[in-house]
């Protein structure tokens, strides 16, 4: 075996004539931070939807830890260790912030009705999960909202919650869809630190989407550029940066927003 955690092979999907992803091929090495950049409509989010099983590809294969996953339902893929966040962040508005986080817990005995009959096991898990959740809330600095409905959080706070919830699941690989867009710069710094720690301490692998090369330059081991559903460049951040033709042609003015 090689050290590839994820392999996307010539994957395509069509939405009523639009080839949102059109034969994309890429891979992600174990323990790496790989960034996918590209203009709006390039197919980045669709690529995430494909990897996470939210949509099924029309053709192509996706391998995780050497096994095909493209036909698995999303919850099975999550169980294998791929956890994603959502562009613009999705929180469950009518659950508390803490409950949103607790949702991320894996193999919770209380999720199963059989577990209803072993209250001790359930409670032990919940207590531990709650501690972990509070710890994460402290790290992202929103612990004061723990008991409030997530629906009261601001856009930036929702993003942090979405990220923390993904971490609750103890993933092998994290898919982050524009995690920094709309988050204030000091917090971005802090997030980058958190992610870096996760990577070095827990050997987490990251695949993240940004539309801006600058943001991901320093943290990425590798940058993949997408446009019109295809991968048009793939390499070290510096080589991509110097590939001015790519940058100009496909990123245009780098200041465009999502």
């Amino acid at each position: 075996m090689n050290n590839l955690l994820l392999e996307v092979n010539d994957v395509a999907v069509t939405f009523g004539g639009v080839r949102a992803v059109n034969g994309a091929t890429l891979d992600v090495a174990v323990g790496s931070v790989t960034s996918v950049i590209g203009p709006n409509g390039a197919g980045k989010t669709t690529l995430f939807n494909l990897i996470s099983g939210a949509i099924k590809p029309t053709s192509g294969r996706i391998l995780f830890e050497g096994l095909e996953i493209q036909n698995l339902p999303p919850h099975k893929i999550a169980e294998r260790g791929i956890i994603r966040t959502f562009q613009g962040a999705k929180v469950i508005k009518r659950l508390s912030v803490l409950e949103n986080l607790m949702l991320g817990g894996q193999n919770n005995p209380g999720d199963n009705l059989i577990g209803f009959f072993s209250p001790r096991t359930r409670k032990a898990y919940e207590d531990q999960a709650r501690d972990r959740a509070m710890e994460l809330l402290q790290q992202i600095g929103i612990e004061r909202f723990a008991q409030d409905y997530a629906g009261i959080l601001s856009g930036g706070q929702r993003k942090l919650l979405d990220l923390a919830r993904a971490l609750m699941a103890n993933p092998t690989m994290l898919l982050l869809d524009e995690p920094f867009a709309g988050v204030n710069p000091t917090l971005v710094e802090k997030l980058l630190e958190v992610l870096d720690a996760l990577r070095t301490k827990h050997h987490l692998t990251f695949l993240l989407i940004e539309h801006d090369l600058e943001t991901v330059m320093n943290i990425s081991d590798r940058v993949i550029v997408m446009a019109e559903g295809r991968v048009i460049a793939d390499g070290q951040p510096n080589s991509i940066y110097q590939n001015q033709a790519v940058v100009d042609a496909y990123l245009g003015t780098r200041k465009q927003s999502s």
């Binding site: 996470s52 939210a54 339902p73 999303p74 919850h75 999550a78 169980e79 956890i83 994603r84 959502f86 999705k90 929180v91 469950i92 508005k93 009518r94 659950l95 409950e99 949702l103 991320g104 894996q106 919830r165 993904a166 699941a169």
Partner: peptide
Amino acid sequence: RATREDDDVPAALG
């Protein structure tokens, strides 16, 4: 309770 609002989030969390 999460599913009454959204399917994608709980599914993405396994």
